[in-house]
Deep mutational scan, measured.
Amino acid sequence: GYRKEQERLGIPYDPIQWSTDQVLHWVVWVMKEFSMTDIDLTTLNISGRELCSLNQEDFFQRVPRGEILWSHLELLRKY
């Protein structure tokens, strides 16, 4: 899972600490993992702090059909 990727690349476990690059890395990883092609990366060119401050409605406004990303983010925030 993504935890291995975080360990390998030194990405903080807590998404709130992610840099913009780390947010984009996570988005690309999830897209590959779940064979998603319809995500516009430019809408998530934000820091982890900004990402974690979005509520579900705001998130889906930025990322239509972003349910998998949202669920994955929720999982990461719990651990």
Score class of each variant (00 low, 15 high):
Leu41Gln: 09
Arg77Pro: 02
Val27Tyr: 07
Pro15Glu: 00
Leu9His: 10
Ser19Arg: 08
Met31Cys: 15
Gly10Lys: 12
Arg8Glu: 11
Trp26Cys: 01
Glu33Asp: 15
Asp38Lys: 10
Asp58Pro: 00
Ser19Cys: 04
Lys78Pro: 07
Asp21Met: 08
Thr20Leu: 05
Ile39Val: 15
Thr37Asp: 06
Arg49Thr: 10
Trp70Gly: 01
Asp21Gln: 11
Lys4Met: 12
Phe60Pro: 04
Glu50Met: 06
Tyr79Thr: 08
Gln56His: 12
Asp21Arg: 10
Ser47Tyr: 03
Tyr13Lys: 13
Pro12Thr: 03
Ile39Ser: 06
Trp26Ala: 01
Arg77Ile: 06
Val23His: 00
Glu50Ile: 08
His72Asp: 07
Cys52Tyr: 04
Glu33Ser: 10
Lys32Cys: 07
Ser71Cys: 08
His72Leu: 02
Ser47Asp: 11
Cys52Gln: 03
Ser19Asp: 12
Arg65Ser: 13
Leu9Tyr: 08
Gly10Thr: 04
Tyr79Val: 10
Ile16Met: 15
Glu67Met: 08
Ile16Lys: 13
Val30Trp: 05
Ile39Phe: 14
Thr37Arg: 12
Glu7Ala: 11
Leu69Val: 04
Thr37Trp: 09
Val27Arg: 04
Leu24Pro: 00
Leu9Val: 13
Lys78Arg: 14
Phe59Leu: 04
Ile39Lys: 06
Glu33Tyr: 06
Tyr13Gln: 12
Trp70Ala: 02
Val23Ala: 03
Gln22Pro: 00
Trp26Gly: 00
Asp40Thr: 06
Ser35Asp: 15
Asp38His: 11
Gln61Thr: 14
Gly48Gln: 00
Glu5Lys: 02
Pro64Asp: 02
Arg65His: 09
Leu76Pro: 03
Glu50Cys: 10
Asp38Glu: 15
Trp29Val: 01
Gln22Met: 06
Glu57Met: 08
Arg3Val: 06
Asn55Phe: 03
Gln6Leu: 15
Thr42Lys: 09
Gly10Phe: 06
Tyr13Pro: 11
Gln6Ser: 06
Tyr13Leu: 13
Leu73Glu: 02
Gln17Arg: 14
Arg49Met: 15
Glu74Tyr: 05
Lys4Ile: 15
Thr42Tyr: 09
Ser53Thr: 08
Ser35His: 14
His25Tyr: 14
Trp26His: 02
Asp21Pro: 10
Lys78Gln: 11
Ser71Pro: 09
Ser19His: 10
Leu9Arg: 12
Arg49Ala: 14
Pro15Trp: 00
Arg65Phe: 07
Ile39Glu: 09
Thr43Gln: 13
Leu75Lys: 09
Gly10Leu: 08
Glu7Arg: 08
Glu7Trp: 05
Met31Pro: 00
Gln61Glu: 12
Asp38Ile: 03
Asp38Met: 05
Leu9Ala: 10
Cys52Ala: 06
Leu54Gln: 04
Lys32Gly: 10
Met31Gln: 15
Gln17Phe: 06
Glu57Arg: 10
Trp18Phe: 01
Pro64Asn: 07
Thr37Ile: 06
Arg77Trp: 01
Glu67Leu: 06
Phe59Met: 04
Ile16Thr: 11
Glu67Tyr: 07
Ser71Val: 09
Leu73Arg: 02
Leu44Phe: 09
Arg77Tyr: 04
Ser47Thr: 15
Gly1Gln: 12
Trp18Arg: 01
Trp26Arg: 01
Gly1Ser: 08
Ile68Ala: 15
Lys32Arg: 13
Leu76Tyr: 03
His72Pro: 00
Leu75Trp: 09
Asp21Tyr: 06
Glu67Lys: 15
Glu5Leu: 04
Met36Pro: 07
Asp38Cys: 13
Lys78Ala: 14
Arg49Phe: 09
Gly66Lys: 02
Val23Leu: 02
Val23Gly: 00
Ser35Cys: 12
Thr37Pro: 14
Arg77Ser: 05
Leu75Thr: 15
Pro12Val: 03
Leu75Cys: 12
Met36Lys: 11
Asn45Lys: 15
Asp21Val: 07
Gln22His: 11
Glu57Ile: 08
Lys4Pro: 05
Ile46Thr: 03
Pro15Phe: 03
Arg65Pro: 04
Leu75Met: 12
Phe34Cys: 11
Tyr13His: 09
Gln56Trp: 05
Thr43Lys: 15
Pro64Cys: 05
Trp18Ser: 02
Tyr79Met: 05
Trp26Glu: 00
Leu76Arg: 03
Arg3Pro: 04
Glu67Arg: 09
Arg49Ser: 14
Gln61His: 11
Thr37Ala: 13
Asp40Ile: 04
Leu9Glu: 09
Phe34Trp: 10
Gly66Glu: 01
Met31Asp: 02
Asp58Glu: 10
Arg62Tyr: 08
Lys4Leu: 11
Ile16His: 15
Leu41Ala: 12
Tyr79Gln: 14
Pro15Arg: 03
Leu24Asn: 11
Leu51Ser: 01
Asn55Leu: 06
Gly48Phe: 02
Phe59Gly: 01
Trp29Lys: 02
Glu7Tyr: 05
Leu44Trp: 09
Pro64Met: 00
Gln6Cys: 09
Arg49Gly: 09
Leu44Gln: 00
Pro12Cys: 04
Val30Glu: 10
Cys52Asn: 04
Lys78Thr: 13
Asp58Arg: 10
Leu54Gly: 02
Cys52Val: 09
Leu76Thr: 05
Ser19Trp: 01
Glu5Met: 05
Phe59Ala: 02
Trp70Ser: 01
Arg77Phe: 01
Arg65Tyr: 12
Ile39His: 11
Glu57Pro: 10
Ile16Asn: 10
Leu41Asp: 04
Glu50Phe: 07
Val28Ser: 12
Ser53Ala: 11
Arg8Phe: 05
Leu76Lys: 01
Leu44Asp: 00
Leu69Trp: 04
Arg8Ile: 06
Trp70Glu: 02
Leu73Met: 05
Glu7Asn: 07
Thr20Tyr: 04
Pro15Asp: 01
Ile39Pro: 07
Asp58Trp: 07
Ser71Asp: 15
His25Met: 05
Cys52Gly: 03
Leu69Asn: 00
Asp40Gln: 06
Phe59Ser: 03
Asp40His: 06
Gly1Ala: 10
Gly48Asn: 03
Gly10Val: 04
Ile39Met: 13
Trp26Val: 00
Phe59Val: 02
Val27Gln: 06
Leu24Met: 14
Arg49Leu: 11
Ile46Trp: 06
Thr20Ser: 15
Tyr79Asp: 15
Ser19Leu: 01
His25Arg: 05
Leu76Ala: 04
Leu9Thr: 09
Trp18Met: 00
Leu75His: 15
Leu24Thr: 11
Leu73Gly: 01
Gln61Met: 13
Met36Ala: 13
Arg62Trp: 05
Val63Trp: 12
Leu41Trp: 09
Glu74Pro: 01
Leu41Gly: 08
Ser47Glu: 11
Val63Ser: 06
Asp21Ile: 05
Asp14Ala: 05
Glu67Trp: 08
Ile16Val: 13
Arg3Asn: 04
Glu50Lys: 12
Thr37Asn: 13
Asp40Cys: 05
Trp18Thr: 00
Asn45Cys: 11
Gly10Arg: 10
